[in-house]
Simulated assay, not measured.
Amino acid sequence: MALTMIRLFRFIGLIEGITTLALFLVAMPLKYWFGMPALVPPVGMIHGAAFLAYIVAMIACLWGRGFARGEWARTTIAAFVPFGTFLNDPFLKRKQLLDEARIA
């Protein structure tokens, strides 16, 4: 099965979510609780790149795929909320399956 654009976007969303968790649950606690700030800059930079990739991919991958305004808003807000991309993924999976059925 070919890689659909929504599937690609879901993968990027997964990476963005993982980097968010790495920043909030690993790097920042090490900095603030244990006085070890070394991981914050590299993890923060990786997360920043993943966040930008998410926003760019959202536009490139989802444009013209039948997303309503509220669905665009939901998917955008997911990038700003911890666990948001994970919570939004089942919705994207349903959209992906509909998109794949339309293509087939």
Rank of each mutant, 00 (worst) to 15 (best):
R94H: 10
L62P: 01
L23K: 01
P42C: 05
I77L: 15
T4H: 13
N88C: 11
R65F: 02
L3E: 14
I46R: 02
R65A: 12
E100Y: 13
F51Y: 14
I12Q: 07
I12L: 13
G13T: 04
K93E: 13
G17C: 08
N88L: 04
G13R: 01
T4I: 06
I103P: 10
P90Y: 09
Q96P: 07
R94V: 13
F11T: 10
H47T: 02
I46S: 01
A73R: 10
H47P: 08
R69A: 13
V40R: 07
E71N: 04
P90S: 07
L62T: 01
P41Y: 04
R69Q: 06
G48N: 01
A78K: 05
F51P: 02
W63V: 04
F24Q: 10
V81R: 04
A104I: 12
I103Y: 15
G35C: 02
A53F: 03
M58C: 06
T85F: 03
V40I: 03
A38P: 00
V40W: 08
T4P: 09
P82L: 07
T76I: 15
M58L: 08
A68E: 07
L97H: 09
L21G: 15
F67T: 00
A50R: 02
L8T: 11
F24L: 14
G64F: 08
W72L: 04
W33G: 09
R94D: 09
F80I: 14
P41K: 01
M58Y: 05
R94T: 13
L92Q: 11
Y32T: 07
L92H: 07
C61V: 03
I46T: 04
L87H: 05
A49Y: 10
G44P: 00
P42V: 04
A50T: 03
D99S: 11
F86W: 15
R7A: 14
P42Y: 00
L8Y: 11
L21R: 01
M36P: 00
T20H: 10
W63E: 09
G66P: 13
W33H: 13
M28K: 10
H47K: 00
P41D: 01
E100F: 13
E71R: 02
V26F: 10
A101R: 15
A57T: 01
L21Q: 08
F86N: 05
F86T: 09
A60M: 12
V40E: 08
A78H: 09
A57D: 00
V26S: 06
I12H: 01
I6V: 14
R7V: 11
M36K: 14
C61A: 12
K95A: 15
L62V: 04
F34W: 11
F9P: 12
W63N: 11
F24D: 03
M1Y: 14
G64A: 07
L39M: 10
R74C: 04
P29V: 03
A60Y: 08
R94C: 05
E71C: 01
P42K: 05
I6H: 09
I103G: 11
F24M: 11
G13N: 07
E16M: 09
F34E: 11
L8V: 11
P37L: 08
A49E: 00
A68S: 14
N88W: 01
L25K: 12
